[in-house]
Design a binder for these strands. Structure first.
Lengths: 100, 100
DNA sequence: ACGTTATATAAGTAAATACTTATGTAAAAG
DNA sequence: CTTTTACATAAGTATTTACTTATATAACGT
């Protein structure tokens, strides 16, 4: 698949846009995403994989946790989408389901 | 649906990106799109409708023909996608299936 | 008016996508 | 070593999307 199309498909979903909004202010761990989206943990992992495969986000492992962040180098299209998103601060270490 | 998500969904498809590439140099009529994409005419009309509903393209009726063009006022995201596309000149009045 | 041409809409089907539950893996804690 | 925690992967299901064929509409030519 063409990279542009892959990136657009990765971006064209409300849940994944929310994930990106959460990451606008820095790294977020998977467990926090689960709380924010209200879907199952596997579903979140699958969404994150789509964003990662498209080169939009990067991951960092720390112990059993995994932190995701927006990639530094972005194509103009992805950059424009991220700019359009309002940063969501309500997704950092809520701590109900995890203790990252 | 959120406008950003609607626009991204409209853009996240190879056929629709091709339609936009065809329109980069100006108006194109539906019959020419049919030749370019190699799908049925109703399928093309449905794709064009998605782009129109998202505010990405405009239509102009002339007799029995209908011409589509890229909208003048575009959001930064749509603008970035269009810029990324290489204009496709091979879709202007081929004339095999229509005579526009 | 009638038939033809260009396009749109409707209805049905096939394929892609996004979830679910169940299971696997890897690191930390006991 | 065993259990727990955090996440990923697998498999199955439900929803969405993109096509198909059939039909409707609207303008033009005769």
């Amino acid at each position: 698949m063409d990279l542009l199309e892959q990136q657009l498909k990765a971006l064209a979903d409300k849940n994944r846009l929310t994930l990106l909004a959460c990451m606008k202010n820095g790294e977020v761990c998977v467990c926090d995403f689960v709380e924010v989206l209200g879907i199952s943990q596997p579903a979140v992992s699958q969404q994150l994989k789509k964003l990662k495969d498209a080169g939009i986000i990067l991951e960092r492992k720390k112990g059993t946790w995994k932190y995701y962040r927006i990639a530094e180098q972005l194509s103009p299209v992805v950059e424009a989408v991220i700019n359009q998103l309002e940063a969501d601060d309500g997704c950092r270490c809520g701590g109900n389901t995890c203790s990252c």
